[in-house]
Amino acid sequence: MNEALDHVMLRTRGLVSGYGRLETLHGVDVDVPAGGVTTIIGPNGSGKSTFLKTVAGLVRTWRGETLLAGEDVAGEPAHALVRRGMCLVPQGRVVFPLLTVEENLRMCAFTVSSASMVRERIAQAYEFLPVLADRRRQPAGTLSGGEQAMLAIAKVIMLRPRVLLLDEPSLGLSPKMIDLVYEKVRALAGQGLTTLIVEQNVRKALAVAGRAVVLVLGTVRYAGPVDQMKAEVDLGRLFVEGEG
């Protein structure tokens, strides 16, 4: 280990996984430093979402390790990883549509056994995301896309994870809502939350991230500081190449 472990919250080494018999990730090494924002960018279908799902335990790890604060957690089921402090906010419809907003929040804190702590965090969530407070008795499925995105972020307040994995937070949102989501992400990161964002919206992601990983066809092309990347990688060409 050439980097001190206490600086790296999440680290993968040679991660291989996929769906069915189809290998999607071909040995991915990623380091996510503690307390910073890292982003994974890359063309469509490069395995960015698969990487997050594998790390979170939703997709089975075929080979390789996932170290969470130095401990290998590869192969553990997703619900167990949540208890260890892993929090994945998946893309698309993430809420339980027929549960009310407040029931959704309670479910996000399923691993928190103290009722008073849950109540306290619900209050904090409403304070951080006031739009949810007005909707607390409403089934989450009736929320607008932006409100659902806020509800997804509220999970972070409920769970207090060690690592936040965000999958395409800007997907399907209006520019105004995207700004709002990133404002919240920045606020959380400002409190020292280790964050890993997978994003199609490269400009937005690079604006908040200190570190970037470029993933192309299941292989890491670049990993390092964002400002160095801009000098080393021709993003325009990369994406054209990936699409072709």
Partner: peptide, 16 residues
């Protein structure tokens, strides 16, 4: 052809 459709492995092809 987007990059979203990686080449199937030989085993998967045989299965299909």
């Amino acid at each position: 052809m987007t990059a979203a459709t990686p080449t199937p492995t030989a085993a998967a092809a045989a299965d299909a």
